[in-house]
Design a protein around this nucleic acid. Structure first.
Length: 425
RNA sequence: GGAGAGGUGGCUGAGUGGUCGAAAGCGCCGGUUUGCUAAACCGGUGUACGGGUCACACCGUACCAUGGGUUCAAAUCCCAUCCUCUCCGCCA
């Protein structure tokens, strides 16, 4: 979320930003309510001061005066309680509005209402493969080679779930190792995170469990949800912590399962593994100072490119338009890999995404840092990026590396992890 | 799951319901001393919000796991929740 003071002092800017981002957040109302809240806070402080004063005078007063003083104290405390109640109401309302306001946007992010305005900024090292046969999509390949079983997933769990089988399992593990090894070499601390998180942490990272359009599965009778990405748990890792400036940048990566309800996502190009309720992901995360975060975003983007260049898969990178950024992101790059089985004769499909969330998440999560020799604290910047989303990476590998004889060549970089150079045949 | 113990400042650890934002020690920062380092000594050392200031200073309020309650007054009493530790049981 944005800083309250910032919103009040820059209401025009924030409003403009909301317009670019397709956000209906009511800034005028926020400002008015926040001013009321501040005034009420002052009232409460003043009443508290008086009541405290009264209370401490009672301890020193002679016994015969105490009853009278107590009555006065009681009256003050009642007034104070009433004011507090009003304050709490105002605060809740302000908070609700504040959460609904999206992050500010990078000045160079393309302006536009939706993903049609996303700007392609580069292509990968490799061109899409040319086939002298009609390529299959991953669902057909998965079935032919006995790699993915959607029917069994539907039977045990429901539509949108699946079993990976045989070499698909090795492929998934190989992709994980490939990504994690690269990240470790880059100085990331590898983690395997919890797959569930407290709702408070979800909120802090900008995910809304139990909202009307939520993507999140909630656990009944608890305040836990299944995570939609390790971004949630990694972001929460340093919640309510004051770090030292010298500790930055902190780079972590996390392997987790990701659970998404995909409410209202039916009907789109979501065949097979593309849009599923559960998948595994290796996620990158960084905590930085404000000065470091722009550069870190470029670095994350570069790593994502290296991962797909290394796999020998064609892709393009898009700079996400303001209207398509979501709440927390200040700037976001998506990497879209070539998927020969998608659409009519192949299409690009999103495989990774990296965002600079500036202090939007850390403000709510309470991730702060101190500068040496300076009073007070600053909010850290947080960034996240997909190293590899296994479900979609598997689509890309299967479809791009399929052969005329129905087998699939294992990308060079994965062979040492898979222990073989070919799937099927 | 059962039985117990406990959660206090960066850490360790005191704290009779009023004088406690909280003793003491450690750490850290600044200073003195000193060939250098160390030691010793002196001083300082939480966060947020609001007021105040050119900026400091300063003032107010809140925070002793979290949320409620009792009371004029709660770190201290009561209840609930969460977390940690020990023992027992169960279990991959």
């Amino acid at each position: 979320m944005l800083d309250r003071k910032f919103i009040v002092e820059n209401a025009a800017l924030v409003k403009e930003n909301c317009a670019r981002r397709n956000s209906k957040a009511d800034i005028d109302r926020f400002v008015a309510l926040e001013m009321d809240r501040r005034k009420k806070q002052q009232d409460v402080d003043e009443l508290n001061r008086k009541a405290n004063e009264k209370a401490s005078s009672i301890g020193k007063a002679p016994a015969d005066q105490r009853e009278a003083l107590k009555a006065e104290g009681r009256a003050l405390r009642e007034q104070c309680d009433a004011a507090k109640e009003e304050l709490a109401k105002l605060d809740a309302e302000v908070d609700g509005l504040q959460r609904s306001i999206p992050n500010m946007s990078h000045p160079q992010a393309p302006v536009g209402g939706d993903d049609q305005s996303n700007l392609e900024i580069k292509k990968g090292k490799h061109a899409p493969p040319k086939f002298d046969f009609k390529p299959l999509d991953h669902v057909q390949l998965g079935e032919k080679l006995n790699l993915i079983d959607f029917d069994a997933g539907a039977k045990t769990t429901g539509a949108g779930f699946y079993f990976l089988k045989n070499d698909a399992v090795l492929l998934e593990l190989a992709l994980q190792q490939y990504a994690v090894n690269m990240l470790m070499a880059e100085g990331f601390t590898p983690t395997i995170t919890p797959d569930l998180a407290r709702n408070e942490v979800l909120h802090g990272t900008g995910y809304i469990p139990r909202g009307p359009e939520t993507q999140i599965y909630s656990i009944a009778d608890s305040d836990l949800s299944l995570v939609a990405t390790a971004e949630i748990t990694l972001g929460g890792y340093f919640a309510d912590t004051i770090l030292e400036e010298e500790q930055f940048p902190i780079k972590m990566c996390g392997i987790s399962h990701c659970y998404r309800t995909e409410a209202g996502a039916g009907g789109r190009a979501s065949r097979g593994l593309y849009r599923v309720h559960q998948f595994t992901k290796v996620e990158m995360f960084a905590f930085t100072t404000p000065e470091q975060s722009d550069e870190m975003l470029e670095y994350f983007r570069d790593l994502e490119c290296r991962i797909f260049d290394g796999l020998g898969i064609a892709y393009r990178v898009v700079d996400t338009a303001t209207g398509d950024l979501g709440g927390p992101a200040y700037r976001k790059y998506d990497l879209e890999a070539w998927m020969p089985g998608r659409g009519n004769g192949g299409e690009y499909g999103e495989v990774t995404s990296t965002s600079n969330c500036t202090d939007y998440q850390s403000r709510r999560l309470g991730i702060r840092y101190k500068k040496k020799g300076e009073k007070g604290t600053h909010f850290a910047h947080t960034l996240n990026g997909t190293a590899v989303a296994l479900s979609r990476a598997i689509i890309a590998v299967l479809e791009n590396y399929q052969q005329a004889d129905g087998t699939i060549v294992v990308p060079e970089v994965l062979r040492k992890y898979m222990g073989k150079d070919k799937i099927g045949g």
